Simulated assay, not measured.
Amino acid sequence: MSLPLLQVQGLKVSFGHVEAVKGIDFQLHEGQITTLVGANGAGKSTTLLALSGLVKKTAGRVTFDGRDITALAPHKIVSGGVVQVAEGRATLTTLTVRENLELGAYTRRDGAAARAADLERIFALFPVLKERAEGLAGNLSGGEQQMLAIGRAMMAKPRVLLLDEPSMGLAPIIVQDIFRTLREINKQGLTIFLVEQNVRQALKIADRAYVIETGAIVLEGSGRELLGNPRVQDAYLGN
């Protein structure tokens, strides 16, 4: 297998005396969907925030495309190609859909024409966003706001897209749409790291998967392997 695009070694994160992430190792390979699954409070979102530079790492090393990004500021990580879609979507509700998307390109320096082309690509991927481009983001449904959050992150031209609980609070039929879109984005070449409590959906689309429990990775394998793992079935799939 090729060298990993993003590699995490010995990552630890503590909040006071509580060690939320306990020295975990994992890697993302270019063009793949990798997922980190586990129960609420297992350390999934903290791991993602640490990768993005939004919480302090107490130990460990993160390399992206051979470059050490462990101590980089969040905006430097974004401009380098690692972009996160926040849990809860974090759309700017008093701005229009178009303005939200344009803000996603704030780190880019490649000219208006390139940004406009990418905006049209987002509109093609999410036609409802084109229909509502001049409306306020706050008037979108939860599923539409999730589409907007993904589109805004893609406007930064990421090489790795980090997603934190994209299914949270959405109706099952909308969740299916979101995961279908993630597969489509991945087929276009984008590497995805998905943190998700909906274990079944995440494992179905994942090339590689890790299970985290109380801050430690306890299982890893292909998505298909973990879907069939009795421990995963008993703990997360209700089989």
Rank of each mutant, 00 (worst) to 15 (best):
121 R>P: 03
196 E>W: 10
127 P>N: 09
231 R>D: 09
80 G>A: 14
152 R>Y: 05
122 I>N: 00
81 G>I: 12
165 E>R: 08
127 P>H: 13
187 K>T: 11
80 G>V: 15
75 H>N: 13
148 L>Q: 00
27 Q>R: 13
57 K>W: 02
173 I>H: 08
36 L>C: 01
124 A>F: 05
127 P>G: 10
230 P>F: 05
38 G>Y: 13
4 P>H: 06
60 G>W: 15
7 Q>S: 12
156 A>E: 14
177 D>K: 13
50 A>L: 12
94 T>R: 13
57 K>D: 02
124 A>P: 04
95 L>K: 13
203 L>D: 02
114 A>Q: 13
161 L>S: 01
219 L>S: 03
101 L>I: 09
190 L>Q: 07
161 L>E: 01
79 S>H: 12
167 S>I: 10
46 T>G: 04
122 I>K: 00
208 R>N: 04
175 V>G: 00
21 V>R: 05
137 A>P: 07
100 N>D: 07
158 P>Q: 09
208 R>C: 07
138 G>D: 06
107 T>E: 03
186 N>W: 13
149 A>H: 02
81 G>T: 07
49 L>W: 05
30 E>R: 15
112 A>F: 13
12 K>E: 14
192 I>D: 00
59 A>D: 14
165 E>M: 06
182 L>K: 02
113 A>K: 14
169 G>K: 10
89 R>W: 08
33 I>L: 06
178 I>T: 01
73 A>R: 15
141 S>W: 09
39 A>S: 07
5 L>H: 08
28 L>G: 05
1 M>K: 13
81 G>H: 12
156 A>N: 05
86 A>Q: 15
152 R>A: 00
115 R>A: 08
143 G>T: 02
205 I>A: 00
210 Y>I: 01
14 S>H: 13
177 D>S: 05
128 V>F: 08
208 R>E: 11
123 F>A: 01
117 A>D: 11
192 I>L: 10
159 R>M: 10
67 R>L: 09
48 L>V: 04
177 D>L: 10
9 Q>R: 15
161 L>K: 06
155 M>L: 08
53 G>D: 03
60 G>D: 12
138 G>F: 11
83 V>M: 06
22 K>N: 04
147 M>Y: 02
109 R>H: 11
18 V>R: 12
150 I>Q: 00
221 G>Y: 12
54 L>E: 08
36 L>D: 07
87 E>P: 02
140 L>A: 02
5 L>Q: 14
234 D>E: 15
179 F>R: 10
114 A>D: 13
203 L>V: 10
3 L>Q: 14
184 E>N: 08
33 I>F: 07
101 L>R: 02
88 G>M: 12
184 E>A: 12
8 V>N: 10
187 K>I: 09
153 A>G: 01
20 A>H: 13
65 D>R: 15
92 L>F: 15
